[in-house]
């Protein structure tokens, strides 16, 4: 997998940034507009998948190594649990308690107020991290499997 033609490479190196930014936008505005952590995470992962298709797997691995992405994956999940746990120890509240809720009932889901939905944007960020990293890992792992097999298959044919 050495990548595609120069046209695809050039276009995708421009487009990848836009896709990545769009993913971040979807994550951050998940509490106001349709979307959220999962959808945003998928878009972020897809920007890396585009890179993988255009430039080949090795190029992407240089940018975002497997260990790093699996750590990011775990950090995302841990962040989510941590947010839930903070709610638990915040005053006499409970698990998943929306602890940034002072303004919550007064002006819920107002534009230009990021914390208007309490912990939901924070949760979205955590989920976006988790989904982005894990989906990237899934596609990466599948491509590794296929590639291994193709090498073995051609070796078998040669023999």
């Amino acid at each position: 997998m050495k990548g595609m033609t120069i046209i695809v490479k050039t276009i995708s190196s421009w487009v990848k940034l836009l896709i990545f930014l769009f993913g971040i936008y979807i994550v951050l505005f998940g509490h106001l507009t349709p979307g959220g952590g999962f959808a945003g995470g998928v878009i972020i992962a897809s920007s890396y998948v585009l890179l993988m298709l255009a430039f080949g797997r090795e190029f992407v691995e240089k940018n975002l190594s497997l260990t790093a992405s699996s750590r990011l994956d775990c950090v995302g999940a841990l962040m989510f649990v941590a947010i839930a746990l903070v709610g638990m120890f915040y005053g006499a509240a409970s698990f998943f308690w929306n602890f940034i809720h002072q303004q919550y009932l007064a002006d819920r889901a107002t534009e230009f107020k990021l914390v208007s939905a309490g912990i939901i944007p924070l949760c979205n960020i955590a989920i976006g991290l988790k989904v982005g990293a894990s989906l990237f890992l899934v596609i990466f792992a599948l491509s590794v499997f296929c590639n291994d097999f193709r090498c073995k298959g051609s070796a078998r044919e040669l023999m």
Partner: peptide, 12 residues
């Protein structure tokens, strides 16, 4: 919560 935290802490 405990096994979930453990599950994601252990690979790190």
């Amino acid at each position: 919560c405990i096994p979930l935290v453990a599950a994601f802490l252990l690979p790190i």
